[in-house]
Design a protein around this nucleic acid. Structure first.
Lengths: 240, 240
DNA sequence: GAGGTTATTTTGTGATCACAAAATTAAAAA
DNA sequence: TTTTTAATTTTGTGATCACAAAATAACCTC
């Protein structure tokens, strides 16, 4: 059986802002590719290949790869090869539970700092999510959902957990996106509303419950093993 | 008033293993310097200076700095300068609470996987900590204490939180070490024992309590504001 | 002296090259 | 065909150089 040597990588090449370093641009490009599952797990990423693909010199790619590895978005193998980590059912579960533990903590810590202005922003974000759901725009839903959580946690000006949370998002990346299926759209809306009601009441415990539920249902198919299994299978296939 | 332009950095230069890359060795050297507070917060780190100091070419330093920045051990300023982040009382508190939330979660998740062999290892580590405390070897205590926690969390073979936890340790680094003062040595011992008893009983809740208390007391001077303040002051002084 | 302007140095970024180790392909042997 | 071995290519690492931007020093004006 002959097959293509390497699975192709589909990048969404954005215009590069002159004020930003090439390294930064490469980093953002690779990051969103990982987050959106555009690179198959197990796929080996080589510096020169990416440099050619992105039309830059090897140096910025090298730095971006190291940073993404440090953020657990990529994995350095013993051979010094860099790959997109493969997923297992157990690891997936650990990532979800870690999200719940850390994010509900971050939410509770942010609560005292949320003022009316920020709450209004949260509401308007939630409305945008509704729209995106009507349009079935999965990628947009995913982005807006992240913005919602980020806006919540960053209310705390001394917050230190967001980088950790973003690392978990990155690791769940490709699988989180597929999760936001039409089936649970009403759940998501409900949970965000619950969260905002809890915020108005300054009820930390209710907020934690809402965030936990939102996460659990946002990646709800963790509880529908056959779906999860399908994606893990895909991830297990050799993508070198 | 004349003062030295740059505060000196005291490295503990270890022999470099040939099998390991220079970048890795530089990374480890810088990491432990940060962890042990051998670089004043606010101190600007330049590639060439470190390269000269460590007697390597700029390239490995460059990569190590980027990795440490990605791990939140260092901070990239707008000017693209890399510094050791400064500490504030609020940030310190956030870091402690984050540790408690994440580590007690990690401990609970590890509990089902802890077998007799690992428990024995934990016991022997605890004995080593006792010894180190008798010798007043603060650095050794700190290292062994970290090993104890790491050994606990890594019992879970699917664990994903250790990198996040290590990032928090790094950020607390210089301040964590100073915390392990003679005053609370009996607390530490007790908490580790409590943890091990909870493990034997497979009591997740008791384990979480023990770990939480251990962390809280290990950095107990968070509750003695005058001490904390002193170190933060030191951190605020311009160390450029 | 102090404040602002210019000159000088230092710095991060990015490009390119050399090289040993690893991966891949080709060839040979069973 | 299947397995071993050898030849070839590709890869990450590390070194060095160029350059623009930033930081620092020197200078001048008041």
């Amino acid at each position: 059986m002959t097959m293509d040597k390497k699975s192709p990588i589909k990048f969404t090449l954005t215009e590069r802002d002159e004020s930003v370093t090439i390294t930064q641009w490469v980093y953002e490009t690779l990051r969103s590719a990982v987050m959106n599952g555009q690179i198959l797990p197990g796929r080996a990423l080589t510096i020169r290949e990416l440099a050619t693909l992105l039309n830059v010199s090897p140096m910025p790619v090298r730095e971006a790869l190291r940073q993404l590895s440090a953020e657990n978005a990529l994995e350095i193998q013993g051979n010094r090869r860099v790959i997109v980590p493969k997923m297992t059912a157990m690891k997936f579960n650990e990532l979800c539970e870690a999200r719940i533990a850390i994010e509900s903590h971050a939410a509770a810590r942010a609560l005292p700092y949320i003022d009316a202005a920020r709450l209004a922003q949260l509401h308007s974000l939630d409305r945008l999510i509704d729209q995106a759901q009507e349009n079935d725009d999965l990628e947009q839903i995913s982005i807006l959902n992240q913005n919602f959580h980020r806006l919540l946690y960053t209310a705390n000006p001394h917050q230190v957990t967001l980088p950790l949370i973003e690392s978990l998002w990155l690791q769940l990346g490709p699988f989180m996106r597929l999760a936001t299926s039409k089936l649970e759209e009403h759940y998501l809306v409900d949970r965000h509303n619950e969260a905002m009601i809890a915020i108005e009441k300054k009820d930390a415990f209710a907020l934690q419950l809402a965030i936990s539920a939102d996460i659990r249902e946002g990646i709800a198919f963790a509880n529908t093993p056959e779906l999860l299994q399908r994606f893990i299978e895909q991830s297990r296939t050799d993508a070198s």
